[in-house]
Design a protein around this nucleic acid. Structure first.
Length: 559
RNA sequence: GCCCCGGUAGCUCAGUGGAUAGAGCAGCGGCCUUCUAAGCCGUUUGUCGGAGGUUCGAGUCCUCUCCGGGGCGCCA
């Protein structure tokens, strides 16, 4: 069971002071509705924590900020949490924490710096990657892979139930997959030196040839000659899925459930879903087809779910899939999609509503494009043309450059996680390799290695460290930074902005490196201070290991 | 035409309506006989794309606009 974090405790102390002031009639009751925000003050301001409460309360109460502060001050002092609370224009209060408060919460953090569990845990389903089973994992898909992976871990950390899911678009009647099957067959025929022609817009590229050749050596000419396109389609598809699974696993990305589109069709769930949607009045008939009322959800126009020839569309199957996820007990669905799918959101929301679920429980997160730069120019990645830049290409190149597969994986994950999902990324291999050596990933990892080294030399701290002895700016800033980790994780679990954790790691490392240069830990003449610093180093080490762990990046003990 | 994302330091990017907008990298100048120099310290750099508006207060919210990227199928 995690203890209350320091920032929560400060918030509670201030809130309590406000309540008491209201009870005594010193402040109007209206201020109780003002949210209490607690932040670290900006760099050049003295104080451990700050609040803008007076500024907010002035708005609703009509009182001046200084009057509010004067009314509140005695109650703030009563809490015993602060050694000082100072007013600063235009209406900030800057607090200095009491040594007892620092001791208490730093000790809690050293024991367990985990976030508090959410009060209303959800049963999340996080669906990510889900690329068609007709190609390898590209650098574009890899972005969604790490984001989904880390997001899942964050949600679990704060107490949600999380299922990580991959949706395999393996519909046997899919035009794309049939074309893929035909293309593989053509390449197999070519490998067997049998005259054959490439289907129009067929799949090219070395990986398609590799699949065809693998089939040839596995099944032999005589057997293959008797097979139809369906065989090539299903076999090549199975090989691609296996390859994707292994590429992702090598990248530290795993799934609990692999769902198959074709199974939905075979069990008739798409038909059942159409019936359900029709029953709820969400479908309209026009030109012989059934249309979903997605325009009511911001779509430009309604979308066909049942074609005039009686075949359900892909959307019908996808809505069936989402309904299925709800029926399996998930009350929150997250879809992590690429930017080319943003126009698809209203359709999904409309579909979810049409089967009787709350569209606000479906969260479609869009991560922006990863462009592939070749000879200085942006090139569209197209599987069909074989113009791919795969995750394996990237990690293998980096592994050679860095001399370590682990380092390559760490750097790529960190690179993706360091910027927010709605930032475009240009991926130039030569640049990526160059940037790898300068990646903030190493900066953060190095801080962890340094912590380990110090603790090895200095020994572990004795229990009962006196944290208040940490009095320099470097020590206090570093300590408070570590104590912020739980709040940081909690926030990410609420707004899904995983990039903030990578920045947190770099920021913490920055503060540790500064501390390291200014504050010796091994002090034979001052055992109490030495012990407090050892405790701080241990806390930093645990904090960095914890955040790097969530990011799926290794925390090396030596570098 | 409509929709989504971006535009912040030389480069890559953070920034929850609050204080003098910050990191990493690159540049320049220093620092290894003492806990890892993949480091630290100092220093240089900003019309937060532009114009209005809301607000006590705007990089952040609203409107318009410019530039870049992506999307708009009875494909999946």
């Amino acid at each position: 069971m995690a203890h209350q974090s320091l920032s929560q405790a400060v918030t509670n102390a201030v809130a309590q002071a406000i309540q008491l002031a209201v009870v005594d009639g010193e402040l109007p009751t209206s201020v109780l509705d003002v949210p209490v925000d607690i932040k670290r003050p900006s760099q050049n301001v003295a104080g451990d924590y700050a609040t803008t409460f007076c500024l907010q309360a002035a708005k609703t109460s009509g009182l001046s900020t200084s009057v509010i502060f004067e009314a509140l001050l005695p109650y703030l002092e009563q809490t015993g949490f602060f050694t000082s609370a100072a007013f600063a224009q235009p209406g900030f209060i800057n607090f200095e924490l009491s040594p007892a408060a620092i001791d208490t919460y730093a000790s809690y953090a050293l024991h367990d710096n985990a976030p508090t569990m959410v009060e209303d845990p959800h049963t999340y389903n996080v669906e990510y990657v889900s690329v068609n089973p007709n190609g390898p994992i590209t650098v574009a898909a890899a972005r969604g892979a790490v984001i989904g992976d880390v997001l899942s871990r964050v949600l679990k950390t704060v107490g949600h139930d999380v299922t990580r899911e991959y949706y395999v678009n393996d519909g046997v009647n899919s035009e794309q997959m049939r074309l893929f099957g035909k293309s593989v067959k053509h390449h197999a025929w070519t490998a067997l030196e049998i005259p054959s022609s490439m289907p129009a817009n067929g799949y090219q590229g070395a990986y398609v040839e590799a699949i065809a050749k693998a089939m040839v050596s596995k099944y032999g000419k005589d057997f293959l000659l008797e097979q139809d396109v369906a065989f090539f389609q299903s076999t090549a598809q199975a090989m691609m899925i296996a390859q994707q699974k292994s590429e992702l696993a090598g990248f530290g990305v795993e799934f609990d459930v692999w769902s198959h589109e074709q199974e939905l069709y075979e069990s008739g769930k798409d038909i059942a879903t159409l019936a359900k949607m029709k029953e709820s009045g969400a479908l309209v008939e026009k030109e012989g087809a059934l249309w979903l009322n997605s325009s009511a959800f911001g779509d430009q126009e309604n979308r066909v779910v049942l074609r005039s020839d009686g075949r359900p569309t892909y959307v019908a199957g996808d809505i069936a899939y989402h309904w299925d996820k709800y029926q399996r007990g998930h009350d929150r669905l997250i879809d992590l999609l690429g930017p080319d799918h943003h126009g698809y959101i209203p359709r999904l929301k409309a579909g979810v509503a049409a089967v009787g679920e709350d569209p606000d429980t479906l969260f479609v997160l869009i991560f922006q494009a990863v462009r592939f730069i070749k000879d200085g120019e942006a090139v569209l990645m197209r599987k069909r043309d074989g113009n791919l830049y795969t995750l394996s290409d990237l990690t293998e190149e980096l592994a050679i450059e860095l001399g370590s597969a682990q380092a390559a994986k760490d750097v790529v994950r960190f690179f993706y996680l360091y910027m927010s999902a709605n930032k475009h990324v240009d991926f130039d291999l030569s640049l990526a390799v160059k940037q790898a050596a300068e990646n903030p990933c190493f900066y953060a990892q190095y801080a962890h290695a340094r912590c380990c080294s110090v603790l090895t030399k200095a020994g572990e701290p004795e229990p009962g460290a006196q944290w208040a002895l940490l009095s320099t700016a470097q020590e206090k800033t570093l300590l408070f930074k570590c104590l912020e980790l739980p709040a940081e994780i909690t926030r990410v679990a609420e707004d899904y902005g995983v990039h903030r954790l990578a920045h947190y790691a770099v920021d913490t490392a920055k503060l540790y490196h500064a501390f390291y240069e200014h504050c010796k830990v091994i002090l034979p003449d001052n055992p109490k201070l030495s012990n407090a610093r050892k405790a701080l180093v241990l806390l930093v080490k645990q904090t960095l290991a914890s955040v790097l762990g969530i990011l799926g990046v290794s925390a090396p003990e030596t570098m």
